[in-house]
């Protein structure tokens, strides 16, 4: 029996290897998605090892308040300070590097929250339907009817401006998109016969929703997650720029751009490099999302 078990397991491994090979093949068909994967990988690496990568971690407020060095203010980009320094003489490269942490954390929190609320709402509305479904989806529509940035502003303004409150504001805006996406998917998956078969076996509604339907809507959620990370970072930076997010001297990209705006165009490097960082992050997540869409073979909106 044991040799049989071994053989069976190696067979299963073969299948897994096979599907990994297929995924790699699909990715190769779309080289830009590999670029996206590279960018995201780089950003995550930078975020994790920021204290070791940045030359002046104390300038970004690592272990304490951001250091100041007025002697060195507005130094042009040079070997010592590749991105230059700001009005307090802080190394912008180090601050941009630490900014990665804030942006990724913001994106992750927002989307985790949005998925945590939106997916169950969509699942329940889609499978249960009827009055409950209608009520949930109409509520979702109310949120969707206001442009996201405007709604985020409306939520952020009455709160204390801080990074945490900016996250909450964006998360509140975001979940309805997931509710709608999942709702649409569930409505089509619900008609599949395996759902009816499960009901015929005697499975409960909860079981059907989470064990039968949810695994079949994971692919579009994954793709949307990747595409949305970029947008969430963009909106987070937008709130920071408007002064509703992280407050200076936090090295958050949007906040930095807003600060640097006062010194344009003479000290161009102050706003430009955080802006490029945002561009790179958004681009990376978009390319990766596109690639995932091909690999997982799904349509999102």
């Amino acid at each position: 029996m044991s040799s049989l078990t071994n053989w069976v397991q190696s067979e299963a491994m073969e299948n897994r290897k096979e599907s990994a090979r297929r995924i790699a093949y699909r990715f190769r068909q779309n080289p830009l998605s590999l670029v996206g994967l590279g960018i995201i990988g780089g950003l995550v690496f930078v975020a994790i090892f920021a204290p070791y990568i940045a030359r002046h971690p104390q300038d970004a407020g690592y272990m304490g308040e951001p250091a100041v060095d007025f002697a060195n203010r507005f130094a042009e980009p040079s070997l010592a300070h590749p991105f230059g320094t700001d009005q307090a003489g802080r190394d912008i490269l180090s601050r941009v590097i630490f900014g990665t942490r804030y942006s990724l954390a913001l994106g992750l929190f927002v989307l985790t929250f949005a998925i945590g609320i939106g997916v169950p709402v969509g699942l329940v509305a889609g499978y249960v339907g009827g009055f409950v479904g209608q009520a949930l989806m109409r509520l979702t529509d109310v949120f969707l009817s206001v442009p996201p940035l405007v709604l985020a502003l409306a939520v952020a303004v009455p709160l204390q401006p801080s990074l945490r409150n900016a996250m909450i504001a964006i998360a509140v805006v975001w979940w309805p998109w997931y509710a709608r996406l999942v709702y649409g998917e569930v409505v089509s998956v619900r008609e599949e016969q395996f759902v009816e078969a499960s009901r015929g076996i005697g499975a409960s509604r909860l079981r059907i929703i989470f064990r039968e339907i949810l695994p079949n809507v994971m692919a579009p959620i994954t793709v949307k997650f990747s595409l949305d990370m970029g947008y969430a970072i963009l909106i987070g930076a937008g709130l920071g720029f408007l002064g509703l997010g992280a407050q200076p001297p936090t090295p958050e990209w949007g906040t930095m751009i807003a600060e640097g705006r006062a010194y344009l165009p003479a000290q161009w490097w102050y706003s430009t490099f955080p802006g490029l960082a945002i561009f790179l992050a958004v681009l990376g997540f978009n390319l990766l999302g596109d690639g995932l869409r091909d690999v997982l073979d799904v349509e999102v909106d």
Binding site: Q193, F194, E196, G200
Partner: peptide, 24 residues
Amino acid sequence: ELKPVRREIQVVYQDPTSSLNPRK
């Protein structure tokens, strides 16, 4: 009340591709 009855009556569907959950 149907749950025990469901053990006694089972359905086999026309299209096996649709009646088996592709993710399981």
